[in-house]
């Protein structure tokens, strides 16, 4: 009996051991989203949108209630076949350009979008002309009559001393 008991235990252990790896690979986890492709599209769109309640977080990164609702709204609209532009239009009609992390290009934002490049070419141009002028000034300075005279004087003095 004792032997049998041990055998049963051993058998149990073996069965358990056989089960163990199965338990370990119980299965592949599934994405939280039902439709991962759509989810990806929603996330990449909402990364460029601003959460309104939490202010400086993107809609994608925020845990706020409203952000979750808006993500759901975006999901639903995408599922019903709306394009990214249509979804963005829907949001800006309600919340204004404030929700866009990438401000649209319009006369009010020309300075924002072109400003840095105007500044770049402006300063680069400015410096080009400054350097040219500087070069001629340096050249004329070194050749000015007064300078020459003084140099000669100094040289003359030095010559006298030595």
């Amino acid at each position: 009996m004792k032997m049998d008991m041990k055998r049963v235990q051993q058998a149990g252990l073996i069965i358990f051991a056989l089960l163990l790896p199965h338990a370990a690979i119980a299965g592949e986890a599934v994405p939280v989203a039902e439709d991962p492709v759509l989810e990806q599209r929603m996330i990449s769109l909402s990364e460029d949108l601003r959460c309104l309640v939490c202010q400086n977080e993107s809609l994608a990164g925020s845990h706020a209630d409203l952000a979750q609702d808006l993500r759901q709204e975006i999901r639903d609209q995408m599922r019903s076949g709306k394009s990214d532009e249509q979804v963005v239009d829907y949001l800006t009609q309600r919340y204004g350009d404030f929700v866009l992390y990438k401000p649209p290009l319009k006369p009010l934002t020309w300075l924002l979008w072109f400003g840095p490049f105007v500044l770049l070419f402006g300063t680069a141009g400015g410096f080009y002309f400054y350097l040219k002028r500087r070069g001629t000034r340096l050249a004329s300075e070194s050749l000015s009559a007064e300078e020459k005279k003084r140099v000669e004087e100094l040289l003359g003095n030095n010559g006298n001393e030595s």
Binding site: L52, V53, L66, D69, L70, E73, R94, Y95, G96
Partner: peptide, 13 residues
């Protein structure tokens, strides 16, 4: 209840 009408009005706070 689900806040849909709120979103339509642009409610945020």
């Amino acid at each position: 209840i689900d806040g849909r009408a709120g979103i339509n009005f642009g409610v945020y706070g």
